[in-house]
Amino acid sequence: MATDALTLDNVHAFYGDSHVLQGVSLAVPQGQVLGLLGRNGVGKTTCISTVAGMVKARGGSIYLGDRRIEALGSETISRAGIGLVPQGRRVFPSLTVQENLSVARRGAKPRWTIQTVFELFPRLQERRRQLAGWLSGGEQQMLAIGRALMGNPTVLLMDEPSEGLAPLIIAEVGRTITRLRDEGMSILLVEQNIRLALELADHIVIMSAGRCVFSGGVEDVRSQPDLIETHLGVAARRPEH
């Protein structure tokens, strides 16, 4: 059996004394999208931050391919091949679009360069000399994705990439995620937009109170409306009249 691109095995993480991740186990298969769903505050972002090394795991193990990474610093984890598209974009507002991309450049013969990112998002090329703080939310999201790609990762962590965006831009972000997946990128996608997540993901993991309560295919989720209602807080069925 091929090794998964990213594996979390019984991972525990804390904020101070607060036990946020209580034994999370999940796997992102090579070249596939794993959708990580759950209500606000269940630990999805903490899970991503722990993989990226920004929150230290106090128990369990995290593997990038065959390499164990949970004890490494976030810069080493990034260099090992993890790219992060953070929640709220977090671009560098005082740097230009081009500088935001060049600051993340890595690799001798990289797949992703400033030029290939501009080909993926032509709008960024038009705005390349503009300060990132002046971009629209959608453009900032494209820049955040482009910036993560500039590190030439093998696994991309995406935290709520559709948050606060207009439907047309969400569709564009969705097409980008599909394209990246088709090119072989393994993606861990945290999303509040259930419809988008079910559209893009190959597998779904649902979290509740710091634990994984469901793991399965997209169709399994669709066929269990109660699961969505219980753990995601949205009505999966249309109300009966």
Binding site: A52, S78, P86, R90, F92
Partner: peptide, 14 residues
Amino acid sequence: QGTRDQPRRMAALG
């Protein structure tokens, strides 16, 4: 300048 504005983000970028 990146480390000035967002040091954690810069670490996450390698």
